[in-house]
Computed example of a mutant assay.
Amino acid sequence: MTKVREDSSQHLRAPLSVTSAEEAAFSVGIATLQEWRTVEEWGNAEGWNVGHQDASCFHGIDPQGFFVGRLGNRLVSAVSLVNHSDKYAFWGSYVVNPEFRGQGYGRKTCKAAKSHSGRRVVGSDAMPDLVSGYSRSGASPAHETVHYVGRPERATHAPAGVVPIGPDHLNAIAEYDSGCFPAYRRDFLARWLWADGHIARTRLVNGRIAGYGVIRPAPVGHRIGPLFADTPQDAEALFDALIAHVQPDEEVSLYMPDLTGSASTFFNDRGLTEQFRVVRMYEGGTPRIRADHVFAVTSLEVG
Rank of each mutant, 00 (worst) to 15 (best):
residue 117 S to M: 06
residue 117 S to P: 02
residue 117 S to R: 00
residue 118 G to H: 06
residue 121 V to A: 13
residue 121 V to Y: 00
residue 122 V to Q: 13
residue 124 S to Y: 00
residue 126 A to C: 12
residue 127 M to H: 11
residue 129 D to K: 09
residue 132 S to G: 05
residue 132 S to V: 07
residue 132 S to M: 01
residue 133 G to L: 09
residue 133 G to S: 12
residue 134 Y to T: 02
residue 137 S to N: 09
residue 138 G to I: 10
residue 139 A to T: 05
residue 139 A to Q: 08
residue 140 S to R: 13
residue 140 S to V: 15
residue 140 S to H: 01
residue 143 H to I: 06
residue 144 E to T: 14
residue 146 V to C: 14
residue 147 H to C: 15
residue 151 R to V: 08
residue 151 R to S: 13
residue 152 P to A: 12
residue 152 P to K: 10
residue 152 P to F: 03
residue 154 R to T: 09
residue 155 A to I: 03
residue 158 A to M: 09
residue 158 A to I: 09
residue 159 P to C: 00
residue 160 A to E: 15
residue 162 V to E: 01
residue 162 V to S: 02
residue 162 V to T: 13
residue 163 V to D: 01
residue 164 P to W: 00
residue 166 G to T: 12
residue 168 D to N: 11
residue 169 H to E: 08
residue 171 N to K: 08
residue 172 A to F: 02
residue 172 A to C: 07
residue 173 I to R: 01
residue 175 E to F: 04
residue 175 E to P: 00
residue 176 Y to W: 07
residue 180 C to T: 06
residue 181 F to P: 03
residue 183 A to G: 05
residue 185 R to E: 14
residue 186 R to I: 10
residue 186 R to V: 11
residue 187 D to T: 14
residue 190 A to F: 02
residue 191 R to G: 15
residue 191 R to L: 15
residue 192 W to D: 15
residue 192 W to N: 13
residue 192 W to K: 09
residue 193 L to E: 11
residue 193 L to W: 00
residue 195 A to D: 15
residue 196 D to Y: 06
residue 196 D to T: 14
residue 196 D to R: 13
residue 197 G to Q: 09
residue 197 G to F: 11
residue 199 I to F: 04
residue 200 A to Q: 10
residue 201 R to I: 02
residue 201 R to E: 08
residue 201 R to K: 13
residue 201 R to A: 05
residue 202 T to R: 02
residue 204 L to Y: 01
residue 205 V to A: 12
residue 206 N to T: 07
residue 209 I to R: 01
residue 209 I to W: 01
residue 209 I to F: 03
residue 210 A to F: 03
residue 213 G to R: 06
residue 213 G to T: 11
residue 213 G to D: 08
residue 216 R to Q: 14
residue 216 R to V: 11
residue 217 P to A: 09
residue 217 P to K: 08
residue 218 A to N: 11
residue 219 P to M: 06
residue 219 P to I: 08
residue 219 P to Y: 10
residue 219 P to T: 09
residue 219 P to A: 11
residue 220 V to Q: 11
residue 220 V to M: 03
residue 221 G to C: 02
residue 222 H to I: 02
residue 222 H to E: 04
residue 222 H to D: 08
residue 222 H to M: 06
residue 223 R to I: 12
residue 224 I to M: 05
residue 224 I to D: 04
residue 225 G to E: 05
residue 225 G to F: 02
residue 225 G to K: 05
residue 226 P to R: 06
residue 227 L to F: 03
residue 228 F to W: 04
residue 228 F to V: 15
residue 231 T to I: 04
residue 232 P to D: 07
residue 232 P to A: 08
residue 232 P to R: 06
residue 233 Q to P: 00
residue 233 Q to C: 07
residue 234 D to Q: 07
residue 235 A to I: 09
residue 235 A to D: 12
residue 237 A to N: 12
residue 237 A to I: 06
residue 237 A to K: 12
residue 238 L to H: 10
residue 240 D to F: 03
residue 241 A to L: 05
residue 241 A to D: 15
residue 241 A to E: 07
residue 243 I to L: 05
residue 243 I to M: 05
